[in-house]
């Protein structure tokens, strides 16, 4: 999936920003690329291979049941796994090694009191995934009730997290709740 925009930070710096919107993943070895996103309940995983100097970010929200719809925890896990696998595969394709990857996790805020702890669920999933997959978690800034802006110099492994008062872009899940998963195509 492609980010929605890529702009120079300013007229002098060679750095340029790539906005990672919900449901997308981006991997780069370009030291001038700054991956950026704003998170509410969503979680972003920033992965970095310090040996190959390759990094990437995803931005995901586990599916929650809509009104009158069913969504079990296994279904949520399948979509979360997909988000993480797309990021890891993107890193592997550029030459990163799974065993060398280091992760930062951000987001997972519970933005609306009285509602389900959606952010906590997203954060717990991300922590569990990294633990089960043996990927080292270098830093986490998760939970709370405020939005965060993340800037990640992916190829350098440098992340910056700022709590912001900005209105968070609407976090609607990009996965159609009715589409529970894919079927098979047979060759023989």
């Amino acid at each position: 999936m492609q980010p929605v925009s890529a702009n120079r930070v300013d007229g002098i710096s060679r750095e340029y920003r790539i906005n990672i919107v919900q449901g997308t993943t981006y991997v780069t070895d370009n030291p001038e690329a700054v991956l950026t996103t704003v998170l509410g309940s969503c979680v972003a995983c920033c992965l970095f291979d310090p040996i190959k100097r390759i990094g990437g970010m995803n931005h995901f929200l586990l599916p929650e049941p809509g009104v009158g719809m069913a969504c079990d925890s296994a279904e949520a896990e399948r979509y979360g796994l997909l988000a993480m696998e797309l990021l890891i595969n993107g890193m592997l394709k550029q030459g990163a090694m799974r065993g060398d990857m280091r992760a930062h996790l951000y987001g997972g805020a519970n933005m609306h009191s009285g509602m389900q702890a959606i952010g906590s669920n997203n954060a717990a999933f991300a922590r569990k995934f990294l633990k089960d997959d043996g990927i080292a978690l270098s830093h986490a800034h998760l939970g709370g009730t405020s939005a965060r802006r993340i800037d990640f110099r992916a190829a350098l492994g440098q992340a910056r997290c700022r709590v912001v008062m900005d209105k968070v872009p609407t976090e609607t899940n990009r996965v159609a709740p009715a589409a529970k998963g894919n079927g098979a195509e047979f060759f023989r």
């Binding site: 998963g181 894919n182 079927g183 098979a184 060759f187 023989r188």
Partner: peptide, 16 residues
């Protein structure tokens, strides 16, 4: 023999 794109549906996987 066949190809399934993640995420998979457990029931569709079982059917395959």
């Amino acid at each position: 023999t066949g190809w399934i794109v993640k995420p998979f549906d457990p029931e569709k996987l079982a059917s395959a």
